[in-house]
Nucleic acid binder design. Structure first.
Lengths: 137, 137
DNA sequence: CTATTAATAGATATACAAGTCTATTGAAAT
DNA sequence: ATTTCAATAGACTTGTATATCTATTAATAG
């Protein structure tokens, strides 16, 4: 049913439906989804019966892929002091400690894929059913 | 010299000096330092020759202590969807995955103390000397 | 064709963390 | 005593991510 979210690629889910299910404002969601479309992880179809549909194997899509597609770049993230010239060669006092955290984050983002999410959420087949069971929002 | 930052508790360092060394605006820094004073990690002295001086063993002070003193509360941090009712018993779809990241962060913050920072930064004795060597800002 | 559904684009608004400014209080030096 | 230095308090401003609104474009159904 809800192709994108359950990762069963049958028919598209609209941004408004997705918005209902996730609690994310639909227009805001659309903007993000557009980026996913541009990155090639999702296809979109306009008009009646249209919506978004996943176009990649969930196992192949990591959190980091999504973040990157949304414009996130780990290398651009400043250290806590916000120094421009804080590199490995010319580090700020917190750099080595900070790097540990960055590494942990990277590890998490690069090694978590959307099949992990599906499995670990217990959301195996149908988000709408899962949603009701959890009595959300 | 720079008691707070080098963790040698001899004489106080002023917020303006700290601001110079760290690149953090002095008044903004003051606000944060006030919270450290309130938490009992730092003493402050007004007037001529005054400033801030660390009042706790650096090994005993963790990143998490500082974050907590600054008002951060891990338990208040919402999941990505921002649902109010997202608890372990009633999780959002990303909850288990998100929890992994939280756990990694917690581990980092609770198990990193200010002696670790000093050692790992290579900033063993004197921040000002270290600062010059690194030609910062 | 026409009506309807839904993505897309871009301008605009809101909320809140980050940062600044001004004035006050307190402590030390002369 | 008076001056100077520095923390403190709190009002105010700024910047930016988050969100909303309006209009347009595209696709399908009847």
């Amino acid at each position: 049913m809800t192709g994108l979210v359950t990762f069963q690629q049958d028919e598209p889910i609209s941004s408004s439906r997705l918005a209902e299910l996730t609690g994310v404002p639909s227009h805001y969601l659309s903007k993000i989804m557009r980026k996913m479309v541009e990155a090639g992880y999702v296809n979109s179809r306009k008009g009646h019966g249209g919506g978004f549909i996943m176009s990649i194997d969930p196992e192949k899509l990591t959190i980091m892929d999504v973040l990157t597609a949304a414009g996130f770049d780990m290398d651009e993230q400043p250290c806590v002091f916000g120094w421009d010239e804080c590199k490995n060669e010319n580090p700020c006092p917190l750099h080595p400690i900070w790097k540990r955290l960055k590494d942990a984050f990277n590890d998490w983002a690069c090694n978590t894929n959307f099949d992990d999410i599906r499995r670990e959420s217990g959301m195996v087949d149908d988000l709408e059913k899962w949603n009701q069971n959890q009595s959300l929002r």
